[in-house]
Write a protein that binds this DNA or RNA. Structure first.
Lengths: 232, 232, 232, 232
DNA sequence: GATGAATGAGAATTCATTCAT
DNA sequence: GATGAATGAATTCTCATTCAT
């Protein structure tokens, strides 16, 4: 599902692993930010978006290794040649899914963390927001926590680096609160972050859109649990 | 032909999902904990154990789909025929890994939950214990949360059912404490369990044996976080 | 992606039973009679024809189950990938052989049966013709009567349906003659057809091209036997 | 089904291809002629009979190559070791099935041919009898005409020789009648025999025990057709 | 007589990727 | 930009047979 409000995207689609193309990389955002599915109004969505949407759905449903390139192109209604025109390899598609989710969450965390409000408010909102955006992108999230080892080693490294940046920003909020005395300092802040993010990853395992709780309710509950756990 | 009713069994595997073998040689849940690797004292470990140990290591390292049967048998020092003599399919090995961890954790949870102590003590100990046993079986845990979708549908169903039983037992401790007024009743108990178990699954992503914290320290911290989150 | 509605097709095979390919590239019954072997004049024959020719020869020589896909592709001078590009499975090749013979014989029977001649002439000619075409396609015929059970159940059903159509058309000639008093009505017409076709199938067991009798002579003898058996 | 009235059998079961056994061949008929299924009255049938019965059923149902030794021993309720104790190889079982049917039919043909009656009576009775015994042993018959190429070359040769002997005896009846002027001499007698036996083989393709015609009725019809075809 | 664990060769099929057009 | 035929290596699984007990 599209997440409204996202500002900029850098290149959904476009060769990233630079296999053989001499023409240089495609421009960032070329295929239109936010267009994640086959369009309905203005004709069919551009090919790269269709491919990303199909790949996301299939990787989430059956896993990366169990999804063949043939299945992706059939679901997207294009040919194999077209896929390899836009993406250097199957694993580029996966990397792009990782990048899309990471960019989205980093952008949102940065926005919350930079606000001028008490740290407990900022943490609560960040903690709740990541729950909502995770539920809104549950396919991406499922792929995320399940398929890291299916990325090529270099891509894994890149993803881990981005992930760490995110983790650190979140951890700094915890540490700031602990230093300021508003949070209990007993637990190492890295561990607090892992505690919370375990639960966030876990969402894709148990959350059902047709369940009792709305995404926002889940988010509020989980943020409450975190904040209560941090009470001095 | 299988001889049902035979008293002692050496093997741990045995066709479970086997296509043609109708006899079904095995009771669920063999392999006896503690015989998990190639033996050193009394000669080499039995073939099924060697296969399970090799499979566990490899599935954890490179993922289920990226581990070939050939690699498993080479690592175990047996032939493919031997593997298929004991296990009906590659996916039987995976199922057995699931079963082993599930049985272990269920047994331990049952023991803690049945004690005659205040509910907050029982929950704390159960919450900490599952962290320690997860870290002690980190390969199993990594496989667990990553490879569910690689099990055959029926096996997934079976695993989910066992998982649910575990979840419910844990949840009942939370609910008991909430009814008794020792835990904050604001969060639905199912959600509390998912919160904690997200973090437990997540351990296999970040915990390093050579890190700063011992398994017990991590366990105590995570149990503290849970109990603090539940304070009224 | 398959492009339905495409006018001309070169290939003869094409996935029919293909698991994942939903597009279904092919209309039943291609391969065009007459293009049955590796071409000599205009360069090598197309890959699907080469595969069909190799498969026909090998299935006839050693039987379907004793012929490996590897042997077929080696005999055809292509790779396994090429085979599976055109045929969804080994059993598709077999089905295609069945289809080719069935179409050929049905077309010829229809032509004879529709003529404006006395029914005894039409039956005699049809009975003799099927002998000649069977001898002309003795490999197909041998495969036909030996390998039905090696087709997948659905394909068996399809073949049986076509076979039944053929049988019924032939039987109707017999019944017509019986009603008209030119044939002895003592034997149920279905049984007459099975009598004759048993002998036709049996040809592949005993007929040798280097034997004393030409195909036409055999055909005339067998048609005579049938017609004499039917004399009132 | 057992065919009552059969006089002697030479060794159903027993090593025939003499693979490795030093102890010499088992005595003919050792396991009791006519006992083709698991006994009910006097306890279970002997192991070789159980194996032959299981193999016959399975080879007929799914074909020789598609029946595994494992399936046979499971169906017979014995172990693999037991099978290899009684039979030198899987293909020995097949050979034994061929031998059993060939012996049966040869014995009966010999009996009919030796009678002191007009040749047309003897031929009619022989032609009808082979139909009845074929229907009574339809599994054997189906295996017979489908699996010749699955026998080892030497066994094929042996079977062909026995088959030829049978064919010749039958052919001699036809020739005798042609010489005597009671049969039409237009058709070579070998061809007449192949005409009839094609239909006999074909029985296993179309005859259904629950159909309209009894075995004897089918036999009479087919014998009538043959005799009418031979009318001068 | 009988067992059943183990072998090892070979089976069909899948699949990401390339490349001439 | 886009096609789709072709590759070739790898994959899971099967199976008749052997042999120590």
């Amino acid at each position: 599902m599209a997440t409204p409000g996202t500002a900029s995207r850098t290149g959904a689609g476009g060769k990233q692993s630079g296999a053989k193309q001499s023409g240089g990389k495609r421009k960032a955002g070329k295929h239109g930010a936010g267009q994640r599915d086959a369009g309905t109004a203005d004709g069919p969505a551009p090919v790269p978006q269709r491919l990303m949407a199909a790949a996301t759905r299939l990787f989430s449903e059956r896993g990366y290794d169990r999804t063949s390139v043939q299945e992706i192109v059939e679901a997207a209604g294009v040919t194999k040649g077209a896929l390899y025109h836009y993406f250097g390899s199957k694993d580029d598609l996966l990397h792009e899914i990782y990048g899309r989710l990471l960019r989205l969450q980093q952008d949102r965390l940065d926005a919350y963390a930079d606000e001028e409000r008490p740290v407990e408010d900022r943490l609560r909102h960040a903690a709740a927001d990541v729950v909502v955006t995770t539920i809104d992108n549950l396919d991406d999230a499922r792929i995320f926590f399940r398929s890291m080892h299916q990325l090529s080693p270099e891509k894994q490294k890149a993803v881990r680096a981005e992930r760490r940046r995110y983790h650190e920003r979140f951890r700094d909020l915890v540490a700031e609160g602990q230093r300021g005395g508003v949070f209990n300092p007993a637990t190492p802040p890295d561990l607090v972050v892992d505690y919370h993010f375990g639960s966030v990853h876990h969402l894709s395992t148990w959350y059902r859109p047709d369940g009792k709780l709305t995404p926002q309710e889940v988010a509020d509950h989980l943020a409450d649990l975190l904040l209560r756990a941090l009470r001095p």
